[in-house]
């Protein structure tokens, strides 16, 4: 079985570990990730100006390309996922815009492509995943950080309940680890404010990490490369700004899945983590 795959820019650069570990996971469960030929940037962030049709062009072209494959495309990066899914929703709601764009572009898109996040794919294939789990993550207490883009707007994304989602926790349970709920798992990490207002991003990320720690997590897992950056790379500054803050490793969901599936360490991409994950993994005999 093969499934069309859209990695997005960051998975080839700063979020390489997400890409490598995800590939390793899919090959471990016997599914081929078929990367779309000739893909481009999704535009990052969905436009919120109703009159900005230009920014829908990139998503539409990606969706049209993907449609030539098999009707579903797997998108692991939360930003790309959100952008493509919202664009898809809007093109379905606003047929006029769809027609205009179709008229001006080489590609033609009918609005029927399904944008799928790996967590949704795992939800649909629980038995398969379960049967491939090799390592017991039982005692690893994982905080599942959803962030904004997988959840909101709920009506358009339809990923899970926007206030109290459980898909991520179910995934973590499925592969044998212990999910720990923390109330700020649905709040914002600061996102791209890290570029313009780093203090705001730092405080937002700090607040939610502290909340997760207060609930006793060993590590935080996420799906978004930007969240990942804010949560991981900013920790050094957090520690300076908030004495007493204890650093905590951040994983991509695909990394802990890869560990559970017994993927070789070199394919986990752990070396890029700013906060070292090795101590905690060794503590639980996972390396």
């Amino acid at each position: 079985m093969r499934i069309p795959y859209y990695p997005g820019c960051t998975l080839y650069t700063k979020a390489k570990p997400l890409n490598t570990s995800l590939h390793a996971c899919f090959s471990a469960i016997g599914i081929e990730l078929a990367e779309l030929p000739h893909w481009y940037c999704c535009g990052t962030t969905f436009t919120l100006a109703r009159d900005n049709r230009m920014s829908l062009i990139a998503p539409l072209r990606i969706l049209a390309k993907a449609q030539q494959e098999n009707g579903k495309v797997l998108v692991p990066c939360s930003i790309c996922y959100n952008t493509l899914k919202r664009a898809n929703y809007m093109l379905n709601e606003d047929i006029e815009t769809l027609d205009i764009l179709n008229e001006h572009l080489e590609e033609s898109y009918d609005g029927n492509e399904i944008v799928l996040h790996p967590l949704e794919f795992f939800r649909e294939n629980e038995e398969l995943i379960k049967s491939k789990v090799k390592k017991n993550l039982k005692d690893l207490k994982v905080g599942c950080y959803y962030g904004c883009l997988l959840l909101r707007p709920q009506q358009e994304i339809q990923f899970d309940d926007a206030e109290s989602p459980t898909i991520f926790e179910n995934f973590v349970s499925l592969i044998g680890a212990t999910p720990i709920d923390f109330p700020l798992k649905v709040e914002c990490c600061g996102s791209y404010l890290v570029v313009t207002s780093p203090d705001a991003a730092l405080e937002a990320s700090y607040k939610l990490l502290r909340n997760a720690q207060g609930n006793g997590v060993d590590a935080v897992v996420t799906s978004c490369p930007l969240c990942y950056y804010n949560l991981d790379a900013l920790q050094e500054k957090m520690a300076k700004a908030h004495p007493g803050f204890k650093q905590i490793p951040i994983f991509y969901f695909s990394q802990i899945l890869a560990i559970a599936l017994g993927v070789e360490e070199k394919n986990l991409g752990l070396e890029q983590n700013k906060v070292s994950p090795y101590e905690i993994l060794k503590e639980y005999n996972l390396l």
């Binding site: 820019c9 960051t10 650069t13 990066c77 930003i79 996102s191 791209y192 490369p225 930007l226 950056y229």
Partner: peptide, 22 residues
């Protein structure tokens, strides 16, 4: 005017998002 070191460190999607908004 963005700090060069940060430019190299930050993930592209942070920069792209910020550029598209700002």
């Amino acid at each position: 005017e963005i700090d060069k070191e940060f430019l190299l460190d930050a993930p592209p999607l942070a920069l792209m998002s910020a550029f598209s908004k700002y």
